[in-house]
């Protein structure tokens, strides 16, 4: 039996070169949307023909935090909420690398919320992929800052009494230069968005609405992850450039998706160099990273 299994698994999936196959199968539940999002990032990297030696991925804690462990890239699985500041340090040390933060909604926006808004404000050149499944999944389905009002969670058994964050609005108003939202079903558009985000100099943010069948769907009696995908199919409204005040997500409401923000703004390192140039003139050598020996 096991020999046969081995043989079947050894077939070469096209993404195998960018995944740590020695760690697959992953820990995510059946019908979880995370694997699909990983495929979108992998396809984006492949289509951009980036040198994958020069891409680093940083994750925090939670189901999404495990992404770093499955991507065959220089990858860092940090502490809860702290992927972004870790990535800030990494990016400043090595601005030649593409730094991608792959994190969940609770990790990035609740415990890591302060880091998120400040890094957006500084316009540090990195790409944030936020997988929003509306719940803390790894810990067993507790309420998140993205859980829609009235939705149930393990810690809001009578329905959530809090208004959720509108993530695209939060990112844009904090200073992000690229903001998009897609669902795990819009996998081609998501791939395009991730490609654009990676190429964009500055703080780019892609929210991915993804199904959590084991917790969010089960607790709220929404069926399986497949039912959530069908829901996204029927209820997503593509509206590029939408007024971000209108993209709130209510419980089982329409989900506005699209590319919302795509602007130009000097990055943190651009501003750092410009400021020091003003102060020191030709004595200042523009910062390019590393130990200053470059």
């Amino acid at each position: 039996m096991s020999a046969k299994v081995e043989e079947q698994v050894r077939e070469e999936h096209p993404l195998e070169k960018i995944l740590r196959m020695d760690r697959i199968p992953h820990i995510w539940c059946p019908t979880c949307g995370l694997g699909t999002t990983v495929t979108a990032l992998s396809s984006a990297l492949e289509q951009l023909q980036l040198d994958t030696n020069k891409v680093a991925v940083v994750s925090g804690i939670g189901c999404t935090g495990r992404v770093a462990g499955y991507m065959k890239l220089d990858s860092f699985h940090t502490t809860h909420g702290r992927a972004v500041p870790f990535a800030v340090g990494l990016h400043i040390a090595r601005p030649d690398l593409k730094t991608i933060v792959f994190s969940g909604d609770g990790d990035l926006i609740s415990i890591g919320g302060n880091h998120f808004i400040h890094t957006a404000r500084r316009n540090v050149d990195m790409t944030i992929i936020c997988v929003n499944n509306f719940i803390y999944a790894m810990t067993g389905g507790q309420v998140a800052p993205t859980t829609p009002l009235t939705a149930k969670a393990a810690t809001t058994p009578y329905g959530n009494a809090e208004h959720p964050f509108n993530l695209p609005l939060l990112a844009a108003s904090s200073g992000a230069v690229y903001v998009a939202r897609w669902t795990a079903l819009h996998v081609r558009r998501l791939t395009v968005a991730i490609k654009e985000a990676i190429q964009k100099p500055g703080f780019s943010f892609v929210e991915v609405i993804a199904p959590c069948s084991t917790l969010y769907a089960r607790i709220n009696k929404l069926g399986t992850g497949l039912d959530l995908m069908k829901f996204y199919h029927d209820n997503s409204v593509i509206r590029h450039g939408a007024d971000l005040n209108d993209v709130d997500i209510d419980f089982q409401s329409k989900i506005v998706v699209g590319k919302f923000v795509d602007i130009e703004k000097p990055t943190y390192i651009d501003c750092l160099n410009a400021g020091n140039k003003r102060a020191f003139g030709d004595k200042y050598k523009p910062y390019g990273g590393g130990n200053g020996d470059n």
Binding site: G81, G89, L90
Partner: peptide
């Protein structure tokens, strides 16, 4: 940084980037 949590993380990130921090 925005706080000390971030500061500590940033120096770890930079150190992995090969820079003494």
């Amino acid at each position: 940084m925005e706080d000390e949590l971030a500061s500590m993380n940033a120096i770890l990130g930079a150190s992995w980037g090969g820079v003494r921090s």
